[in-house]
Amino acid sequence: MLKIDDLHVAVGDAEILKGLTLEVPTGEVHALMGPNGSGKSTLSHAVAGRDDYEIASGSVTLDGEDLLALDPNERAAKGLFLSFQHPMEIPGVQTMNLIRTALNAQKKARGEEEVSAADFIRTIREKARLVGLDDAKLKRPFNVGFSGGEKKRMEMLQLAMFEPRFAIMDETDSGLDIDALKMVGEVVNALRGPDRGFLVITHYQRLLEYIKPDRVHVLAGGRIVKSGGARLAHELEKSGYEQFIEAA
């Protein structure tokens, strides 16, 4: 279970999260919605361990383990994965090399055996096909010159390769075409299971057609202002966030 309790996060002088509390039990998929600038990405970066986000108070645990005490790579090794809203381009690093280095770093940290080159190549080819990236892309420098949609597919490729215990997907759906949206649904649904959790950040109901959330939360004014079932996303689509912004 990912458990966030009374989290206060500041960037520079600005307090962005002001006592956010959220629980995503293992085995569930929760959606997080909220207006632009409300702090959804701030939350995902803070949970992943980006150090220019100052955590004033509160706690974040994954299956009871304090994440805030760990380095970002240690959190990754514990099974936390973040699909970035704006994935990076990394010139000079071959895609396949990056993913393999990362996978082996995680395995090493967990005391597991590294994957062999042959196994790795077989698996990544298979998963790349699944997310709609061709082999040539795997040999190119990581994300360099890729389209917005391709970069999101690359995030899904990594999700599929790492098979994390808990994934935060920050607007994976933005910039994706309809087929890609469906693919994201397939990748997530294939991984979905009793020992995995997901927090899906999105602005639109569309993605949630493919990934049926167990719960939906609304973030506004630095806090969760409303939580409900899958229907809440439908209601928001109609009514917008105005009521919450005023309330917050």
């Binding site: 790579n73 990754a76 994965f81 973040l82 994935p87 990076m88 990394i90 000079g92 690093v93 770093a105």
Partner: peptide
């Protein structure tokens, strides 16, 4: 690039590995 460093660390590379990978790419 701090963003690139964080990205790599989120993927599991420790600070030294992440820096080394980026420097190697630069000189590469």
């Amino acid at each position: 690039d701090e963003d690139a460093l964080f990205y790599l660390r989120q993927r599991g590379l420790d600070e030294h590995e992440a820096r080394a990978l980026l420097v190697d790419a630069f000189v590469g």
